[in-house]
Nucleic acid binder design. Structure first.
Lengths: 141, 141
DNA sequence: ACTATAAGTTCCAATAAAGAACAACAAATG
DNA sequence: CATTTGTTGTTCTTTATTGGAACTTATAGT
């Protein structure tokens, strides 16, 4: 795995914005010498720093570290599978939105789910079955 | 800057592939306890590890850390709602994230909540009370 | 050549992560 | 049930890596 594109990119996007190391350091609230070490590959920035750089430079993290085309090549081989998983992921976040919406309005339910989560799996499933029955009943009341 | 999506995602994609922590650790050639600490947010994986995860999970780094536009778009709605509803901060936010996560992984529960959502408020509250009783019982079984 | 600005380097303190060993927990087995 | 297995969480120690300050070097403008 080669990540040596990152130092180059940091320097590239910094100079592209006509910023000195000091100016970039100020934006990140760190010392200038660290920037120098990043750009020379002496030190690898941690995830938080990289995320900030991604936002400041308006470039994806994958592009900054030079893994986007590489990963795309690797992923193309598994395109079908990848596609399926992406859809699943999409569904996941759709769920997240409406479930969050509902839960936000139901503090009690949130607490109950919290407690439920801490129960053994067996008990959780039992509760699910019971709930199914209860909700089924409630629908026809 | 919120990067607390990473631990959740690591665990999510690992379990999604039906891998144990040990199996994932083997793929990365590291010790298992590190995986546990990543998933619990005790430790942040360095860039090389994240890049490997990105390839293994076939997900962009930006997505894994929860900083891609897709994730942000989906979550912004949720975030606005959260901002509007409460001024308690991080803790509540985290609650919603993991509760959503939990529900999404439990298809049965998700469907039940979906149905519950469509019931009259009165019936919903009744169900909540019943659930409270059931969960309380289950805890002391 | 001199000065000022910017960038590279060295050293050290502080921080963070990795691994091993142990503990906790639920699931499976008999 | 009791026991064993499999999986995950936690603690402790060692190791390594990073970040910052200060110093050195290089470059540009006068």
């Amino acid at each position: 795995m080669i990540l040596n594109q990152l130092p180059t990119n940091i320097k590239y996007y910094r100079t592209r914005n006509n910023w000195t190391q000091q100016q970039l350091a100020d934006k990140l609230s760190i010392s200038r010498s660290v920037i120098a070490k990043w750009e020379n590959g002496d030190v690898t920035p941690d995830l938080h720093a990289i995320a900030k750089l991604s936002i400041i430079f308006e470039q994806s993290i994958d592009h900054l570290v030079g893994l986007d085309s590489q990963t795309n090549d690797q992923l193309s081989e598994f395109h079908q599978l990848y596609q399926a998983k992406t859809n699943q992921s999409q569904e996941y976040y759709n769920d997240l939105v409406w479930v969050s919406d509902y839960i936000t309005k139901n503090t009690i339910l949130k607490e109950q789910i919290f407690e439920m989560q801490q129960l053994p799996l067996k008990k959780q499933k039992a509760i699910h079955r019971i709930m199914k029955g209860i909700i089924g009943e409630a629908k026809h009341l």
